[in-house]
Design a protein around this nucleic acid. Structure first.
Lengths: 224, 224
DNA sequence: CACCATAGCGTAATGAATTCA
DNA sequence: ATGAATTCATTACGCTATGGT
């Protein structure tokens, strides 16, 4: 039971690829011999003027906070198209008074953000689907049991009044492969998401979850 | 006003309390008006040199990338305990030659990373469970169909040779509530994770996924 | 009350590896 | 096969909220 990864590594994640010994190519130099996109450490352009909302004076922090206007604009563009071709980049750069590099970075980060959000959403969706199908399964189990009973009774009836038997008990017994054993029929129904992780591994979670969860969702993570 | 986080904030808050003894020791020799732990902007000088990857260049390290040693150490400590009390922080700080602030930041980031990783894992687990249960459901559906057929036949037989009927057709018809309609019985079996998103909402995905997925997993996200 | 450190969150920015034209 | 752009992972910063002395 390897809960860890092993079998189910998501494709989203990067391959192993440990960064230990590498040749380390100096892919930057701070003279910007680079083309129009690689500056060294941005020299804090001026977001300036736009003390609109928070009135936070962000004169020259070394980490620029984009103004609401800029953000809105970027966001709009992002909705239009998540990819950023050089033309668009330059256009936006001039338009917003930001370095091209910053535009690129923003888009990059935005994409990443989007992705993780997406995972969240995906999880929720799947969870719901799971619950649904779990219920359906339960219903089906009931159904199967009911039918079996009926069949048995009917067979009984037939046998009592007649000698012909078209279906044997073996056939009925063999047909089940999922696990509808007459009694304790809903033993599997508890397979709600809350318990799933518990079941499939993660029996040992070194670091305590503490903040993770705090909701109905606390699954006892077990560190990566 | 924020385009960003809208509806689904997990809202994971800290449950318990934290045990940190007070005893703070002012730890810097620099001149800051900031709080104990707030430096201005850590200075950022020329990264310039640095050719060796494994080069444990502690002291100077003005720019990013902690050395493998440092990382290893931090990681170990993290496994021991995800929370970081001031004592530990200081100890680590001296031990690794990093600013206390950096230690704190690292832990914070580590926690965040852990959390998202966790989501990944959770998703995979759930996905697998879903597939399993989906198969089971399918099997059950088959089973139900088979039983029905058998029942029908048996009933037929009974009816042919006798007039007594203990179970009516209504009973059989009523019993189904999930959707095992005689023909096209496996119509639901395709409910693999690949299609789920398509089905349950997110039917409209404005921005093209392109890089997201690029595998069999491409779900057509639909931006947040 | 204020003060102050810290946790969590969001996000800008950097570095390394990878992809691609 | 070289270099530009992108991805992934990481480091860092600002902010708000909270707890505790």
């Amino acid at each position: 039971m390897e809960w860890n990864n092993g079998s189910l590594t998501p494709k989203l994640l990067s391959p192993p690829l440990l960064h230990h010994q590498s040749s380390y190519t100096p892919c930057y130099n701070y003279n910007y011999t680079y083309n129009l996109d690689h500056f060294p450490v941005l020299e804090t352009k001026k977001p300036a003027e736009e003390s609109v909302v928070g009135g936070v004076d962000q004169k020259n922090k070394n980490k620029t906070k984009l103004s609401p206007d800029q953000l809105e604009s970027l966001e709009r563009r992002f909705q239009e198209e998540v990819k950023l071709d050089p033309d668009r980049k330059m256009k936006l750069s001039k338009e917003l008074g930001l370095q091209p590099r910053q535009i690129a970075i923003w888009f990059q980060n935005r994409r990443a953000r989007w992705k993780t959000k997406q995972l969240q959403h995906l999880y929720d969706t799947l969870k719901q689907e799971f619950d649904t199908i779990s219920n359906q399964k339960h219903t089906l189990q009931q159904e199967v049991m009911k039918l079996r009973t009926m069949l048995l009774l009917r067979e009984e009836a037939t046998r009592n009044h007649q000698g012909s038997m078209a279906y044997t008990d073996e056939e009925m017994a063999e047909s089940t492969s999922v696990g509808v054993r007459s009694s304790t029929n809903n033993y599997m129904y508890n397979n709600k998401v809350e318990d799933l992780v518990e079941i499939s591994g993660s029996g040992s979670g070194p670091p305590p979850p503490f903040w993770w969860g705090a909701e109905e969702d606390a699954h006892r993570p077990s560190y990566p």
